[in-house]
Simulated scan of single mutants.
Amino acid sequence: MNRPLPTLKPAVRTIAVTVLLWTAITALGALQTYSDNLRGGAASHYPSLFVKWFLEYAVPLIVLSAGLSLALGRWPVLLERPRNVVGLFFGLVLVFQPAQWLYMAWLRGYLPIDSAGALWQLLMKMLLVGWFSTTGTFAAILAIHYWRQARARELAWQRSQTDMLGLRLALEEQRLLALRAQLEPHFLFNALNAISALVRDGDKTLALGGIGRLSDLLRYALTASVRNTATVADELGFVRDYLDLQRLRYGERLRVHIDGVSELLEQVACPSLLLQPLIENALRHDLDCREGPGDIRLAFERDGDTLCIRVANPAGPGTPANPGAGLGLANTRDRLRLMHPSASLQAGLQGDRFVAEVRLPLALAD
């Protein structure tokens, strides 16, 4: 019993709009005829003209417009192929057009017809009266139907794009969380290694100091884990603390030169825990691979609308072309790409040094 309700309201709306439209057209047509009669000096009565126009012209075209609109709405397959459109038009010509002519002839008193000649004259009169209005109505209904179909496809496409964008954003957020979950244990593992080395050496005082520094580092890491971005200045402060912890392990061998520090670093946004994996990578491929003091260089330089960050360390003769393809650098590269399409990380040998270069857009931090 409730099934016809969803289709009843659109049908009523279609019929109501059709009646209103043709009533308005009838009012304008009757007004034009009334004006022409007055200019020609003929007696004229506008209400009578309106009723005549409505009964003779509007009623058939209301039936055609509403019936065709409802049929196309219910059976859109009627217009799926050009031959269907042609067939529908010829059906209109063969069925509706004669019915309209007979209706108008009945209203005008042309019936009954007593000869073939009278029938021919009637057809000629009705041809000029109804052909163009009927054909024009058919064309207008088809145009409106095609427009509605195109609009529906466009809205469906927009909804699909919105859904895809939402799904992609959700996937990117989950991926970012996964990258963070990988990075933080990785950092913790390496920091604990530094402290465990002090314990093995029997230096409890330095080990306790290292644990204190580690707690400060973990406090920053936990805070950073709930933020998408940090400032480069904050990350530099975290790296300095991290180097102080590593200095307990490496002693005077750990030498890091930092250049280009300015107020600009307070304004540039970057992924949290950005610099630490780069410095850790440099330590692993510098101090852990050779004897003697290290030579790690961290430099900041503005290049147009980009902040360039370079971390460089010496590369021995047997160093592979891409020694920095581990978890830390891989995660850093992915997190940069998720933060901004123009952010990037390039790493590789440049002469006798391995260089990791980060490029960040000069976007204000949150």
Rank of each mutant, 00 (worst) to 15 (best):
T33S: 12
L222H: 07
I279A: 09
V129Q: 12
L72I: 15
H145P: 00
G91S: 06
E252L: 00
Q161M: 10
Q97G: 02
I211G: 04
I279W: 01
E291Q: 14
A363N: 13
P47H: 06
L72R: 12
L192A: 08
Q246T: 03
D366T: 08
R39Q: 12
D286W: 06
P323Y: 02
G202C: 00
V256G: 07
G292A: 09
L31T: 01
V256W: 05
A170D: 14
V77H: 03
T18I: 01
D244W: 03
P185G: 03
P112M: 08
L155M: 02
L142Q: 13
E357S: 13
G210F: 03
C289R: 15
R247A: 13
R168D: 11
F354T: 06
R302W: 10
L327V: 13
L8H: 02
D36F: 12
G41D: 12
V239C: 01
F90P: 01
L327I: 14
T223K: 09
Y46P: 01
N313Q: 06
A224S: 13
M124Y: 04
N193C: 03
A325H: 12
P314M: 08
A343S: 15
Y250N: 09
R227S: 13
E184K: 00
N228Q: 14
P317I: 02
P10E: 11
V63A: 14
A178V: 00
G117W: 06
W22N: 07
R333W: 06
E56I: 06
G41T: 10
V63E: 07
Q161Y: 00
Q174P: 00
R353P: 08
F132R: 08
L287Q: 10
L21M: 08
D303R: 15
F300D: 05
D216N: 11
T23E: 04
Q350S: 14
H186I: 00
C270Q: 08
N331C: 09
S133V: 08
V239Y: 01
V17K: 08
R302P: 12
N84L: 05
G91E: 05
L70Q: 14
R175W: 10
T134N: 11
E263Q: 09
V355R: 11
L208M: 10
A343Y: 09
A207L: 13
D295K: 09
T137S: 14
S65V: 00
E184I: 00
F96W: 10
G318R: 11
A24N: 05
I296C: 03
P4A: 02
W101G: 05
